[in-house]
Design a protein around this nucleic acid. Structure first.
Lengths: 155, 155
DNA sequence: GGCTTGCCTGGAGCGCACTCCAAGGTTTTA
DNA sequence: TAAAACCTTGGAGTGCGCTCCAGGCAAGCC
């Protein structure tokens, strides 16, 4: 028996923030076709199937004819995957994480460490980007001045 | 005649911050072999040649036997390229920018706009990452609690 | 002279993350 | 009930950013 929000996705939201970009997920449902998930996540159906093939997804329910039926927990998981993707984390690492989740409670420590390492990476990346922002600001200021200088030369 | 820091790379540093990571560039020199540039930038020689082939670099001087001789302006440019690379800007866009620089002063406005668009992207990306950071913080807190709970169960 | 080291070239190859295809079954709409 | 829309699969293809290879030239050293 699974005991974590990770596994069930139905606990109070300790897991992943509700989506913000794509399409708001309706409350009171727990069963979505692949095209609905496409609408919610912005991922393609191809990508969703591919995620499943490579082991990035938990087991996805099927209808009696074999079509995928995603639940809210699956959507939560895809939300996390989406966030991690933004950090540039390789898909292979996410698969490792997914495997740990499937493996059960004894992987808590490992998961914790992977998340902490990821957090360090994200912080570093933010710092890099802020650095880059400073460079851009200086360059843009320079271009602004040069533009004005050119304009007054012409005048 | 070129009139910009972009083109000469020798003006006071309106262009790119001095490097920080790899290897400090010695002052008083203006002539480097490809392997020195490798040491300064962390890029591979392959990549440096490839950048040149695709039009991402300005004209690079050659020794009398045809070997590349990079100058400080080239290194400044590579510094900017490195920063832009961190933002996820496609190499093709950087090539467009490089082409504008080579095309001359009449592309100022366009370059300015490209830089501003890039800055917007970077700001957005920072916001995304901070969002992701919040998710990671919550998840890590959750794992911390769960870890403690598990530990006390076992005790 | 021979050996090593560093550089040159065009072009092929690689890893990643999708993305699409062909051929077929299912569900919904008119 | 027939057409249109949607879903399934395994496997092939794509685009990006390198990365490497083969074959060769040039300079320094014993």
């Amino acid at each position: 028996m699974e005991t974590t929000a990770e596994a069930t996705g139905t606990d109070t939201d300790v897991c992943v923030a509700p989506p913000e970009g794509e399409l708001r997920r309706p409350d009171g449902r727990d069963n979505y076709t692949i095209s609905e998930v496409v609408a919610f996540t912005g991922l393609s159906a191809h990508t969703l199937r591919w995620y499943e093939r490579i082991g990035l997804m938990p087991h996805i329910d099927r209808s009696h004819t074999g079509q995928r039926r995603y639940n809210n927990g699956d959507l939560d998981w895809l939300g996390l995957v989406g966030k991690l993707r933004l950090t540039g984390m390789p898909v292979a690492d996410m698969v490792r994480y997914a495997e740990m989740v499937r493996a059960g409670d004894h992987t808590y420590r490992e998961r914790f460490e992977l998340l902490e390492a990821t957090r360090r990476d994200v912080r570093e990346r933010i710092a890099e980007l802020q650095d880059t922002l400073a460079v851009l600001d200086r360059k843009i200021a320079f271009y602004g001045d040069a533009g004005r200088a050119l304009a007054s030369e012409r005048a």
